[in-house]
Simulated assay, not measured.
Amino acid sequence: MTKPPFVHESAYVDDGVEVGAGTKIWHFAHILPGSRIGANCSIGQNVMIGPDVPVGDNCKIQNNVALYKGVELEDGVFCGPSCVFTNVLNPRAEVERKDEFRPTRVRRGATIGANATIVCGNELGRYCLIAAGAVVTKPVPAFALMAGVPARRIGWVSRAGEILDETLICPRTGEKYRVVDGSTLVLVETDEHRN
């Protein structure tokens, strides 16, 4: 039996919004028209989503995050408290640029740390991990561990979020990885690890 979504009485969910089963929308959140939130998500206090923003299943969006038009979250994405997404590269208060929004796609299982900034127009790869306070200014490969200002890859992480050593074996799950072409990490597929 599926649980209906929960919306706190102080939150606003506008007409034309889809909210999946089991999702919880907490205090003072605002979901704008055309947005679609998947099942079993947690939408924290003071979160703003939309308009027209898709959020996959099983996402956790912590307090004080704004997902503007152009941002897309796939399943299982974690957005840490007060992380920031931009949508225009060169904003000016006196220049209208709504037709210049750049898309930002966050792939399945990615984690964005608290107070990190994601500059628009970049894709965050599957299961990457963006460190707290990092500033992402370019596309991020799958499984990359990114830190700094501007963010750079300082290592690799597993699907479980564990930092990988030179063996490229996840210490939590035993999953094995390999590097392809010197810059891409892939999971070594076995029958037990197929997703």
Rank of each mutant, 00 (worst) to 15 (best):
Y12R: 08
T23K: 01
P171N: 11
G109I: 04
P33R: 03
A142Q: 06
D165A: 06
M146P: 04
E189D: 15
H30N: 12
P5V: 06
S35K: 02
K98M: 09
G174T: 05
V47Q: 02
D99V: 14
D181I: 12
P91H: 02
S42D: 14
G148F: 07
G20N: 02
A116N: 00
A11Q: 07
D181V: 10
S42F: 13
G20D: 00
G161W: 02
D99E: 14
R172G: 07
Y68E: 08
T190G: 13
A142H: 07
G161M: 00
G76D: 11
S183H: 12
K69F: 10
S35Y: 05
F28W: 14
L129C: 12
R92K: 12
N63A: 13
V106F: 06
V186P: 11
V13E: 04
N90M: 15
G133L: 04
C59E: 08
E192Q: 12
G174W: 00
V180L: 13
D181Q: 11
N87S: 08
V7F: 03
K24M: 13
A21L: 02
N63K: 00
Y177Q: 09
N46K: 08
I61G: 05
E74R: 12
S158D: 09
N64Q: 11
C59K: 05
H30S: 14
V149M: 11
I31V: 15
D14L: 09
W156N: 06
Y68W: 15
A134W: 00
V135Q: 04
A116L: 03
W26P: 05
C170F: 00
A93C: 11
K176L: 03
L89G: 12
F28T: 09
K176W: 02
R172L: 11
K98I: 15
V180G: 04
V53P: 05
E96W: 13
V135T: 09
Q62C: 10
E96V: 13
G20C: 03
V53C: 08
M146I: 11
V55A: 06
W156S: 07
